[in-house]
């Protein structure tokens, strides 16, 4: 019973605090400025700590393969990493798949910013700022200074089936990418609406 009173008192005090909120008038609102924009950093990693591998481990030698926990660097992993399969044909067309296969490693970036910006006469667009641009509000995405790849790799392939475990699987690797190190960038990407669909 005492506990209930306690809850009641806390709630009443919360309601009392809510009373402190009041509608702002237009003059009051005009004086409020918000910090415009956000800054983001991010990291994307595949299989960093390993995962279940079903591959060449066949303990009794009679065919059924066993899953083991391991990292892509482990010797038994002839295939490892994330796989993305896409088919753009209808079911009546040819049945092959585009594949991004064996994606592994890490990508990270720092200092991506997003904010809204009004183009004004003080901006430098070689005269375009005074032409169509003046007064236009755009979304400004400040590109990160560095995009860092850590042993990031994937293969671009074409495949007969979506999964390597499907019946009739064959796959042709077109090329692969293996990146380690930083890509330096500068500049902004401005996004705004256009066109007449």
């Amino acid at each position: 019973m005492k506990f209930k009173y306690c809850v009641l008192v806390i709630m009443l005090s919360l309601v009392a605090q809510l009373h402190a909120l009041e509608l702002m008038n237009d003059e009051g609102l005009e004086k409020v400025t918000g910090q415009n924009g956000v800054s983001l950093s991010g990291e994307l990693s595949f299989n960093e700590d390993g995962g279940p591998l079903t591959d060449t481990i066949d303990p009794d030698g009679v065919g059924s393969l066993t899953s083991t926990w391991g990292a892509c660097s482990d010797a038994q992993a002839s295939r490892c990493g994330a796989r993305l399969s896409v088919k753009l044909n209808k079911d009546t067309g040819s049945q092959g798949w585009y594949v991004l296969d064996e994606m592994k490693g890490k990508i990270s970036f720092e200092g991506l910013t997003i904010k809204s910006r009004e183009i004004t006469a003080t901006d430098t667009f070689g005269g375009d700022e005074n032409d169509i641009g003046s007064g236009m509000t755009v979304l400004e995405i400040g590109l990160p200074d560095k995009i860092k790849y850590e042993n990031f790799s994937y293969n671009v392939a074409t495949s007969s089936t979506a999964r390597p475990t499907d019946v009739g699987f064959t796959q042709q690797v077109r090329y692969g990418v293996d990146f380690n190190g930083s890509v330096n960038m500068q500049g902004n990407m401005l996004v705004f609406p256009t066109g007449n669909p």
Binding site: Y175, D178, F179, G181, G187, N188, L190
Partner: peptide
């Protein structure tokens, strides 16, 4: 893209130590 530039540079051509960008397959 405003005031844009991008560069990737491998160690062999004066980039940071350990940098490599390979096309495999």
């Amino acid at each position: 893209f405003e005031d844009f530039q991008i560069e990737m540079k491998g160690e062999v051509m004066g980039g940071d130590t350990g940098n490599y960008f390979k096309i495999t397959g």
